Amino acid sequence: MNPARVCDRADLSAAGALFRGLADPTRLAILRNLASGEARVVDLTGILGLAQSTVSGHLACLRDCGLVTARPEGRQMFYALAQPELLDLLAAAQRLLATTGQQISLCPNYGTPDC
C-alpha cells in the first residue's frame, strides 16, 4: 500500500468529521447567525424559533468540533465563531450549491424527499 494514500485517508477522515459536524441544518443556521457577531442561546432561540435545549445541544457540538467559542459574562454565555475560515467554507458551499441547482436536493442518499 502506498504510504501517501494512508496519510490522505487520515486527512479525509478529519474532513469527513468536519462535514458531519456541519451536516445539520440547525447547526448551519446557528453558524450563519454567529457570522454577524456574538449571540447568547436566548438570542439564537428567538431568531431560529427553536427550544433552548436544541440550540444548546447544537452549540455544544459546534464547541466540541472547535468551530464555536463561548465567552462567559456574568451569568450569560456569549457564543462566537472560533475560526473566520469557516465563513469562507460556507460561502464556497453556497457558490457550489448555486452551480449545481437542484441536483443536491434530489440526491437519493442525502437529498430532501418529495413526499
Rank of each mutant, 00 (worst) to 15 (best):
A4W: 03
A4Q: 07
A4M: 04
A4R: 09
A4D: 10
A4P: 02
R5W: 06
V6M: 12
C7V: 08
C7A: 12
D8F: 08
D8K: 07
D8P: 00
D8R: 09
R9C: 12
A10T: 08
A10M: 13
A10C: 08
D11K: 11
D11Y: 12
L12S: 10
L12C: 05
L12Y: 10
L12G: 15
S13Q: 15
S13R: 15
A14I: 14
A14R: 15
A15E: 11
A15K: 13
A15Q: 13
L18D: 15
L18G: 09
L18Y: 12
F19K: 04
F19V: 11
F19S: 08
F19R: 11
R20C: 07
R20L: 12
R20P: 01
G21C: 14
G21P: 09
L22Y: 12
L22P: 09
A23R: 11
A23K: 03
D24P: 02
D24S: 13
D24L: 07
D24F: 05
T26D: 09
T26R: 15
T26K: 06
R27P: 03
R27K: 09
L28Y: 00
A29C: 05
I30W: 02
L31V: 04
L31I: 04
N33H: 13
N33S: 12
N33Q: 13
N33A: 08
L34P: 01
L34S: 01
L34M: 06
A35Q: 13
S36R: 10
S36W: 05
S36P: 00
E38K: 07
A39Q: 07
A39K: 07
A39S: 07
R40M: 12
R40N: 02
R40G: 08
R40E: 14
V41H: 01
V42R: 14
V42S: 14
D43G: 01
D43P: 00
L44I: 02
L44N: 03
L44W: 04
L44G: 00
L44V: 01
L44P: 03
T45H: 06
T45C: 10
T45K: 06
T45I: 03
T45S: 08
G46S: 13
G46N: 11
I47E: 10
G49D: 09
L50D: 02
L50T: 01
L50Y: 05
L50G: 00
A51T: 04
A51I: 00
A51Q: 10
Q52V: 01
Q52L: 03
Q52Y: 07
Q52T: 06
S53D: 14
S53N: 09
T54Y: 06
T54G: 02
T54N: 11
V55N: 03
V55Q: 05
V55C: 02
V55H: 02
S56V: 00
S56Q: 08
S56R: 10
S56P: 01
G57N: 07
G57M: 06
G57F: 03
H58W: 02
H58C: 06
H58T: 01
L59K: 02
